[in-house]
Amino acid sequence: MKKQPLTSFSEHIRNLRETAELSLRQVAGELNIDPSLLAKFERNERQPTKYFIKLIADYYHIDNNELLREFLSDQIAYKMLDEYDGLEILKVAEEKILYLKSKKQ
């Protein structure tokens, strides 16, 4: 399977719309949201809710979890972008996730 080029969440949802040759108004109308809000999501000026991410995934018939991973990984990447030890912080965070998951079970 060929790996897709790395893009941000906002670029990804814009690419989905443009590849389908749809206007902002068309997609926004189908999703029952204001076109200016969709444009802000596509320009990374506003952050969507999980509900909106599910709407987009359903609309384009793509995996919701995949799109949610794309969004959440952006959030983490932007937080770590200016940190000197960003990658080391991510390694520690991974260990903490495993620890916290084991405590939940």
Rank of each mutant, 00 (worst) to 15 (best):
98 L>A: 12
76 I>W: 03
40 K>Q: 14
21 E>I: 12
4 Q>D: 11
27 V>D: 03
76 I>M: 01
78 Y>R: 15
31 L>C: 08
102 S>G: 01
30 E>Y: 11
84 Y>R: 00
92 V>F: 02
96 K>G: 02
38 L>N: 03
29 G>V: 13
104 K>P: 03
84 Y>N: 01
5 P>D: 10
13 I>L: 01
103 K>W: 15
65 N>Q: 14
43 R>P: 08
46 R>K: 14
71 F>M: 00
41 F>S: 09
11 E>I: 11
73 S>I: 03
92 V>H: 10
13 I>V: 07
45 E>V: 03
52 F>H: 04
93 A>S: 05
28 A>L: 04
9 F>R: 04
5 P>Q: 09
74 D>E: 13
9 F>M: 05
90 L>Q: 04
50 K>Y: 07
8 S>W: 10
49 T>M: 01
45 E>A: 11
80 M>E: 02
50 K>N: 10
16 L>A: 12
61 H>P: 07
81 L>C: 00
88 E>N: 00
74 D>V: 00
70 E>W: 05
20 A>M: 05
31 L>Q: 09
11 E>A: 11
27 V>R: 04
56 I>G: 01
63 D>M: 12
81 L>M: 02
3 K>N: 06
78 Y>L: 09
14 R>Q: 14
93 A>E: 00
85 D>I: 04
34 D>Q: 02
99 Y>A: 13
51 Y>N: 11
96 K>V: 05
